[in-house]
Amino acid sequence: MAKTFQNLVSTLITRLGSLGRLSWPWRITWLYLTVVLLLPIAALVLRASSLDLKDIWAIATNPVALSAYNVTFTTGLSAAMINGLAGVVIAWVLVRYEFPGRRLLDAAIDLPFAIPTAVAGLTLSTIYSDAGWIGSWLAPLGIKVSFTRLGVMVAMIFISLPFVVRTVQSVLQMLEVETEEAAWLLGASDWQTFRRVLLPPLMPAILTGVAQGFSRAVGEYGSVVIISGNIPFRDLIAPVLIYQHLEEFDYTGATVIGTVLLLISLAILVVINLLQALGHRYG
C-alpha cells in the first residue's frame, strides 16, 4: 500500500517535471482546461459518487424526475426531427433556388445562435400566447402553445434550427447538379433521383445536424423556462428541475439529476463524433 502510494507520488512528480518543460502555449492550455473544465466536472462526478447508490437510484428514478426526462427527451427528439425535415428543405431552397429575399433568409438562419435565449423565450411566449399574433389564431382551434409542452417544443425548434440547415447546406453546395441530371437522363424519376442520388451523401450531414440540435435542445434552459409552465408531469424539463433543486438547496437532488444529464450529453457527443467520422469517410 505504502509502496503504491510512493510510486504514485514519484510518477506525479515526474509528470509535473515534464509539465515544466512544456512550451508556454501548452502550459496555458492545460492550466485553463483544468481550472475551467476538468475541475468542475470532477466536482460533479465525485460528489455523485460519494452518495449512497440506493439514494442515487431513488432520486434518479423519482416519478417527477422520470417525467422530466421524458418531457425533455421526447420533446427534444420531436423538435430535432422537425428541424431535420424542415432543415433539409430550407437548405435545399437556399442553395438551389434564386428568389427575392433569399440572402436575407440565409442570414436570418443564424439568428437563434446570436439572440440570447431569454429574449427568444420572451418573444416566443408572447407570440404563441392566447392573445399573441400566432397564438390567437390557434386558440379558437383549441391549441394552446405557451405554457404547455407544445411551447417547450417551439422553443426547442427555435434554438436548434440552424444546425441541420448549416450542415446540409455545406454538403449540398459541394454536390454537382450534373449528377442529378445524369440520373434523370438515365430515366430515374424525381423521387428516385432524390432517394438514390441526393440522400446518401446528405445523410451523415442530416444525422449530425439532428444530433447536434437534439443535444442543444435537451440542455436548453433559458428559452424553455420562460415559455413553459414548469409544472411537474406536464411541461417540466430536466434542466429546470435541477434549477428548482438548487433553489431549495437540495444539492444531492441537483447532483444526481445533473449527473444523469451529463452522462446522456456525453453519450450524444460520442454519437455525433461517430456520425462525423462516417461523414468524412463517405463525404
Binding site: 473544465l37 466536482a43 444539492y251 441537483a254 445533473g258 451529463l262 457527443l269
Partner: peptide, 27 residues
C-alpha cells in the same frame, strides 16, 4: 473533443458544477 465539451453540457449543469466547487458546501 474535450475542448468542445462545454457545447454539449447543459448550461444549468455547468452552473451546478461551479456551485459544487465554489459554493458554501463545495470543495
Amino acid at each position: 473533443s474535450i475542448i468542445d465539451l462545454p457545447f454539449s453540457i447543459s448550461p444549468v449543469v455547468a452552473g451546478l458544477m461551479l456551485v459544487l466547487l465554489y459554493g458554501k458546501n463545495g470543495w
